[in-house]
Amino acid sequence: MVKFSGKNILCFCEDVTVEEFLEAVEKYGIKDLQLLKRLLGIGTGPCQGKQCIVRAALLLALKKGIKPSNVRLTTFRPPSRPIPLGVLIHGELGEE
């Protein structure tokens, strides 16, 4: 008999496993991805959800028996990917 071990990672940046995610959904009865993001930290690391948020939404939909169209993704914000702060000093402000 093969003994399985190892983590199935959901959010690679914040080290949140699929198991932990599903457990939180069940324990708190959460239907909102926003609340799970704030509780577990999924989607808040350097990749900002590029690898986890869609997968999390579909997992949530499956687990709660709701349609993916009823699961709202978390809010996307600039920057599209991390850039050095020092570059922004040279951003043109100009007149507005």
Binding site: T75, R77, P79, P84, L85
Partner: peptide, 11 residues
């Protein structure tokens, strides 16, 4: 030193 640290999110 923050010049080389990366901007990750604004809200």
């Amino acid at each position: 030193a923050l010049a080389v640290v990366n901007f990750m999110r604004q809200w």
